[in-house]
Design a protein around this nucleic acid. Sequence first.
DNA 1: GAATCGCTTCAAACCGCTTTGGATAGCCAA
DNA 2: TTGGCTATCCAAAGCGGTTTGAAGCGATTC
Lengths: 342, 342
Amino acid sequence: MNLKELATKLGLSPTTVSRALNGYPEVNEATRARVIAAAKRHNYHPNTRAIRLATGRAMAVGHVIPIATRHEIVNPVFADFIAGAGEIYSRNDYDMILSVVADEDEEATYRSLKSKGNVDGVIIHAPRLNDARIPLLREIGLPFVVHGRSTGAAEPYNWVDVNNRRAFQRATEFLLDLGHVRIGLVNGLEFMDFAIRRRTGYLDALAARGIGPDPSLMFSGEMTEFSGYRASQAMLALPRPPTAILCSSMISGMGARRAVEGAGLVIGRDISIIIHDDDLSYMKNGEDVPIFTATRSSVREAGRLAAEMLLHVIAHPDAGPQQRLLEAELIIGQSTGPAPKA
Amino acid sequence: MNLKELATKLGLSPTTVSRALNGYPEVNEATRARVIAAAKRHNYHPNTRAIRLATGRAMAVGHVIPIATRHEIVNPVFADFIAGAGEIYSRNDYDMILSVVADEDEEATYRSLKSKGNVDGVIIHAPRLNDARIPLLREIGLPFVVHGRSTGAAEPYNWVDVNNRRAFQRATEFLLDLGHVRIGLVNGLEFMDFAIRRRTGYLDALAARGIGPDPSLMFSGEMTEFSGYRASQAMLALPRPPTAILCSSMISGMGARRAVEGAGLVIGRDISIIIHDDDLSYMKNGEDVPIFTATRSSVREAGRLAAEMLLHVIAHPDAGPQQRLLEAELIIGQSTGPAPKA
DNA sequence: GAATCGCTTCAAACCGCTTTGGATAGCCAA
DNA sequence: TTGGCTATCCAAAGCGGTTTGAAGCGATTC
């Protein structure tokens, strides 16, 4: 059942039927009601492909996922972000297109997405310092929103981000207030912008109390369980081990916990741990009582906000750059306590 | 730059240019070379929307993701599957469309995907016993491949699955061989088909040694860390606790580990643990030496295979039902050992 | 020399919708 | 009566490709 058939059945022109269904004013309300009823009765759904060609809009948004060579983006955090964004897209009749491509094809993918007209806009994931994708997308004229920020970008751009610096600064201050002085940082990969900001927050808080950086207490790597385990284990083996560890994710925090317990220490008494909690749906930080003290910010909500922003940017290309900074909450759990007496 | 412009520039008709670029035989090879060169020079990329309308194919595949009310599908396993499938799609110039919809809209989503012509086929995730989606998709005539199987389906359908029954049977036998008799099962939700099969494998292995089921050693729930923790904790608190636990995922296994260590027991000595390892890229079961003894099967590879199967089914609608059963490996790690002397 | 054939190429229809630019009819003021 | 509005509706032209049916043309065949 297509538009022409429906129009014939109704004894109307395709023009009128199309207008009736799309809410245009130049159609008699009685006629409109008749058309709508007939459309429902005959289970008419306009062909998306035809709409797209006729309107010149893709009604789709792209997420390009480079396959890991340097950094695995297909991680639990990504999944939750996608879920949040996807809610918004389907609510607005947009398709979400995921392109999984080799690292080196990423630029070509954006260009082809634009020139072949597959999408109306894209979301940039996991931005780095001076991320090359920002000038690229500006150049090819594809609307975009960045999930995160990219320090060093020349001009303003659209982004949704958590205040990572402040979050880690507060977490560090919280530990300092508990008397901790030697605080380890198990960070993400520090060519990622968010990881840089977290480190900055951590260092700022330490510096404010006159504590300088100690490289042996600072680790940067993939945020896996194993990586968190090994980094924590190494720190605990130091002559002067930390009394607290700040972890960049729930998963690396679980690795840290394994290392601490493996060393026969008790979390919250001998060693305090704070994690960053993305509030993942299938990896809750406890149910009623949080397992870990954490800086919490829902990445799913960030996905919703970024998607909404992108749709807004697509609809209003000339509105200025949109920006949204989210604050993380500091959630007190069972993994922190006063620094043990020396 | 579109086809007509390019044709004009070349002094050819759009027909010939189209055919030259699409490899049709009825075009002079010299002309074809000239066309291809011009297309490259002018950076011509055919408009996807036009191709789709003209050919009547969507060149896209859908993955419908119901938002959690009963079961959260947006989990790490799902993310890796998607990554694998996505590789295949982009290699074949197909788009991967993710539809995130409320549970109750799932059926409507499939119907609209079909009638609006957004996709050429779909992949069904997380099938249940007598899954309603299978007859539904057959009814509306949308090609599909199931990731997993659905016990009770009336007619054969396309699927890619791991031999879950055999995997858990072997894992259980392995534990039995080590002298374990009281073996706990921390399973996924048992309205999911894979969880049912795993339970069957576990029970079959026990029954073969004359051991009957003990409900207090069998848990079924979401595969989260917390759920694994609580289930294991409860089992360990029994008057006659298990000496081994079989977990349905890496994540619930991590919860089990926490419970075991929290009880002051040593894994691999006091309690053995076997998990099912989906070989997730960001949640490796150790690096060189596996942390957990595990039944391993790459869900990413399953995603690749399912995607390939779907593209094949789309291209050859009349080929019979395709099926692919993968066997899991049994990987020996550090989490298992002989049953402790009573 | 005419008919046939294979190789190339093209004009035009078509995919299913949107949108522009009328056309028609009813109604009211002049 | 007539011109001007307004309210409705429609024919036709796109959107940018693919595909059908036909035609031009030199070579071959009879």
